[in-house]
């Protein structure tokens, strides 16, 4: 799967892949975070490179659900693979409105719970298991199709994963970026706060996937620093049933094809060595 926020709004995807390549190599497209109203996003700078990683603070720039449905979703659907819309809300009601708007329009939803809850003074949903319970339960009442929750790697992660299972999510995506900070200027101090992604976080998220997949029965989708077939295989061996590629798309737009090819050759090798294959 292509991870949310790492392939724009789908306008340019066909510049780098043929439709055949998309169908043969990409299991699903997870869209950029979509909110009820349009969001201009954060002022620059929005990205900063760290050793083996990238901090981003885009600010969920998106056209809002109405324009997204009108001007972007048709093209994304035309790629011919399942479309999962990532939802961004700052209160439970926004998620519900978005779910309602997307009924019959998308194949699945991915709830981004790494957002501040304005009704709770900006406390992140991912820190508040009570609100996540309510969120998943209420979205499930509206949305009968595939429902994923993208967990934050910080906060009561294991508890939140169990809540997602209890209230009917089909899967948890483990995990979003890690809260991080970069110093841009020393004096006066200027910093960039954002989410860290890339190979730097892979061992951390791999551990979460390993542990969470043992705790819950619903499937786990691994997401964190996958840039090679070997990385993807490690996630699968550690309990993930599928994986998302994110930062690698920013390095090379054709990275997903390369990763799948490498994974196929690695798994072919595994099978030939195993008596059960």
């Amino acid at each position: 799967m292509l991870a949310s926020g790492t392939w724009g709004l789908g306008e340019n995807l066909d510049k780098f892949f043929t439709l055949k390549e998309i169908k043969e190599n990409i299991g699903a497209l997870v869209t950029k975070g979509i909110s009820v109203n349009p969001r201009k996003g954060n002022p620059p700078p929005r990205t900063f490179e760290t050793p083996c990683g990238l901090i981003n603070s885009i600010g969920i720039e998106n056209p809002g659900i109405k324009e997204f449905k009108r001007n972007y979703l048709p093209k994304i659907k035309s790629y011919g693979v399942p479309v999962i819309v990532n939802l961004y809300g700052e209160e439970v009601e926004e998620f519900l409105e978005l779910s309602q708007e997307l009924k019959g329009e998308a194949d699945g939803l991915e709830l981004n719970i790494s957002c501040p809850n304005v009704k709770k003074g900006g406390l992140f949903f991912s820190y508040d298991s009570k609100t996540v319970s309510k969120l998943v339960k209420k979205v499930r009442e509206i949305w009968k199709d595939f429902l994923a929750v993208k967990l934050s790697p910080v906060g009561p992660v294991y508890e939140i994963a169990e809540i997602c299972e209890k209230y009917g999510a089909d899967t948890v995506v483990v995990a979003n970026t890690y809260p991080a900070l970069a110093v841009l200027e020393f004096k006066p101090l200027k910093v960039l706060q954002g989410g860290l992604s890339g190979p730097a976080i892979k061992p951390l998220t791999l551990r979460l996937v390993y542990d969470i997949s043992k705790k819950i029965k619903i499937s786990v989708i691994g997401c964190g620093g996958i840039v090679s077939g070997k990385d993807a295989l490690e996630y699968l061996l550690c309990g993930a049933k599928a994986f998302q590629v994110g930062t690698a798309n920013l390095i090379d737009p054709r990275a997903p094809i390369k990763i799948i090819k490498e994974l196929r050759s690695l798994t072919d090798g595994l099978c030939s060595k195993s008596a059960s294959c």
């Binding site: 926020g5 790492t6 392939w7 724009g8 306008e11 340019n12 510049k15 780098f16 950029k32 201009k40 996003g41 954060n42 002022p43 620059p44 700078p45 929005r46 990205t47 900063f48 490179e49 990238l54 981003n56 885009i58 720039e61 798309n249 920013l250 390095i251 737009p253």
Partner: peptide, 21 residues
Amino acid sequence: FLACGTGFCMGCVIPLKRKKH
């Protein structure tokens, strides 16, 4: 600062006087 160069990440924003970056 520019990350993807392909329009994928929306990181390289140039603020415009218009409504949209």
